[in-house]
Design a protein around this nucleic acid. Structure first.
Lengths: 215, 215
DNA sequence: GTCAACGTTCTTGTATACAAGAAAATCCAG
DNA sequence: CTGGATTTTCTTGTATACAAGAACGTTGAC
């Protein structure tokens, strides 16, 4: 519900990029987009700037802005960073999380379990995301939380893929349970270690997938 | 050496914000700035967007963009996040850093020592920044490095203040030496622990300063 | 005197016009 | 026919014009 047309366009473009509508290196033609969205170039340009600063596109002066889909290397780097940030959030959350958030976490975990039993991947994915978000919040550090949310958003599309691996859902679930227990115990280091591995394995699974596709 | 006028203006505005030329909540008047920079509103608006996405300003639709200097709470959050990110970088760097970077680190440390002996705060500060940047690079994760650099940049002005504390320079130096040795030993956990404390103490010193000023 | 409604003014958001640099196409020399 | 220079076209970057919403002041009723 943005008021500015430019922000709406930025959102839409972001969705399109995530949906893979653009290839890496594609130029985002201001005129074409303006025509497509039935606006002038001005709001388009402002929307493009948003994409550029969020890292999804690159701007070359006097040349235009180009889509920059992360390659395998950058993706692995992002997954590793996510793993480390999650570990940090978890370690902080272990001593700071409110009882209320702990309950919320347990509830989300229950819904995760239900989703698995129903083999509802989409629902599992949504609940899984919430699970992690509660931990971010539990770290009681607004700045860190924002960084974590941003990266989670950026990795969403790729994170999703690896859940399709056989048995990954169940494994993911048991990792969640472990995290929850460690949080309840206030065992900061174990939370950090488990969460780091939990996210890192996603990167590895994703890497496997990429490798198998490229052969 | 940006080609676009808008980028130059964004840089200049960023400097001005860091220099404290603007108070928290100040509105950035497009017309006034346009006049001041001798350009039209268009490049000003693009520059403002940069500030907004970098978090230094807030945009309220149809109202304008307002300077948002972080308050004490947010600053502490940022320092804590920086401490954790540094710890992560350090832990990764302990096993990944090249011999070349290790040598560079030792060299920078020597120059830090010289700066202390010359009581040259500015030079110490510059070398200190380089010291940390080499560690970011040592983590061998471009994405993480970028995040670290961004936050370092954002905290520069505040980090600087706490170095004026009596004895802080020498303490900072000895912490650097410890980090260097742990890195050489490949003792990842000790590097992480030391770096975390090294940065966290900066936040605490800063907090002390704020508190003492507000009385 | 206070509060609210209306109207004016000011500011942002968008459209269009213009300038300047980059890519592409054409033309000419060898 | 090929290579390079020149001109043309296209695209971005900036300026200006216009539209619409927000702040502010004035006026009038109570």
């Amino acid at each position: 519900m943005d008021i500015r047309r430019a922000d709406q366009i930025a959102d839409t473009l972001e969705q399109l990029v995530f949906a893979g509508e653009f290839q890496d290196g594609d130029r985002l033609d201001e005129l074409k987009l303006a025509e497509q969205f039935n606006v002038s170039r001005t709001p388009i340009r402002e929307a493009l700037q948003v994409l550029v600063t969020s890292g999804m596109a690159e701007q070359i002066p006097r040349r235009g802005v180009f889509i920059r889909q992360p390659g395998p290397v950058e993706l692995m780097e992002m997954f590793e960073t996510m793993a480390e940030i999650e570990a940090v959030c978890g370690r902080l959350a272990a001593t700071r999380m409110s009882d209320q958030d702990l309950e919320a976490l347990a509830a989300v975990n229950d819904r995760c379990q239900q989703a698995i039993e129903a083999s509802d991947h989409d629902r599992y994915y949504a609940e899984n995301e919430t699970f992690h978000q509660i931990i971010y919040r539990g770290a009681a550090n607004g700045y860190l939380e924002k960084q974590a949310l941003q990266l989670q958003n950026r990795l969403r599309a790729y994170r999703r893929i690896q859940l399709r691996f056989r048995g990954r859902l169940e494994q993911s679930m048991s990792e969640h349970l472990a995290v929850l227990q460690f949080l309840k115990d206030g065992d900061a280091e174990s939370v950090a270690k488990t969460l780091r591995a939990h996210v890192a394995i996603q990167g590895e699974k994703f890497h496997q997938l990429i490798a198998s596709l490229q052969r």
